[in-house]
């Protein structure tokens, strides 16, 4: 069953000058057709300005399509009556952890979503505890968000979304402002959500290492979906990725270069272990 589906989705930003006259139109998303199965882990890749964030904002009904339709859990995002249902079903985590934490204490921030939904007090506490445990931040529930590291803050943001019991979580470059260890922390938490809690994950990123575990990868370029497939399929097309200004993981690149020089290696090697096995085994 598809949890998120887009059909011929087009979104245009209209640029205006100071008098409000239309200066030009930028098509950020251009006829995108996307189907996401419930429970899957999807990654959307693309360099800056490829339209991936704009696409993400459609899933949470922050942006309305210019043309085409987006369905979340069977609901049309253009339907204003379904707006809050959609936002509850499809949670969203943004890039900057400082700009999305509302509470002055970790637990209060996680409770913000359920409070808005009108969940009874006792259930809020229950949800907050569950969500904080799921991302491994329960010990920090009484902390001020200002005292946490970037990775921890981002995990709190994820818990905040999780407390709303969404069916799908859209993460819009959640690791872009983090250091490598923070990045690992966040990705580990996201994978756990997908595998243990069964939440559908749509991860938007430009770090290749993060999508290795995805079920399906979409590569965007100039608002269009340029490539799609499993990580292995996508990574085996090294030249194509390079032309889209994307880097492949170092191991994959090494394997690719070795193969080009005549070594017998399978396509799309993703991890160091795989390469070791292929070389020595």
């Amino acid at each position: 069953m598809s949890i998120v589906k887009t059909k011929d989705l087009v979104f245009e930003y209209i640029r205006r000058d100071e008098e409000g006259n239309v200066e030009g139109i930028t098509t950020a998303v251009d006829h995108v057709n996307l189907t996401v199965r419930e429970g899957s882990f999807i990654a959307i890749l693309g360099h800056n300005g490829s339209g991936k964030s704009t696409l993400a904002k459609h899933i949470n009904a922050i942006l309305d399509p210019t043309e085409g339709t987006v369905w979340v859990d069977g609901m049309d995002t253009a339907d204003p009556e379904k707006l809050w249902d959609i936002r509850q079903r499809a949670g969203m985590v943004f890039q900057n952890p400082d700009n999305q934490i509302i509470g002055q204490v970790v637990e209060e921030d996680v409770g913000f979503g359920p409070e808005n939904m009108g969940v009874p007090t006792e259930e809020i506490w229950q949800r907050v505890e569950e969500s904080l445990r799921a991302v491994g931040m329960y010990e920090y529930r009484k902390y001020s968000p200002n005292k946490l590291s970037g990775g921890q803050k981002q995990r709190v943001s994820i818990a905040g979304v999780l407390a709303m019991h969404p069916k799908v979580i859209v993460l819009d470059e959640p690791t872009a402002m983090l250091d490598p260890s923070g990045r690992k922390e966040v990705i580990r938490a996201v994978r756990a959500l997908n595998q243990v809690e069964g939440v559908t994950v749509i991860l938007i990123t430009h770090y290749m290492e993060e999508i290795v575990h995805a079920d399906q990868v979409f590569v965007m370029d100039q608002g269009r979906i340029a490539m799609e497939g499993t990580p292995r399929e996508v990574f085996s097309r090294v030249e194509e990725l390079k032309s889209l200004r994307l880097d492949v993981p170092q191991v994959t690149l090494l394997a690719y270069e070795l193969k080009k020089r005549g070594l017998e290696l399978p396509d799309g090697i993703l991890t160091t272990e795989e390469l070791v096995k292929a070389l020595c085994g």
Binding site: F94, N96, I102, G113, M117, I124, V161
Partner: peptide
């Protein structure tokens, strides 16, 4: 810029003013 981001994040978490809101710590 921060205010803009925050407003978006709040809306994404279903914030729609005080009406129908419950309290975690009443």
């Amino acid at each position: 810029r921060r205010a803009n981001d925050l407003a978006m994040a709040m809306e994404a978490r279903c914030y729609r003013g005080g009406e129908g809101r419950t309290k975690m710590k009443p």
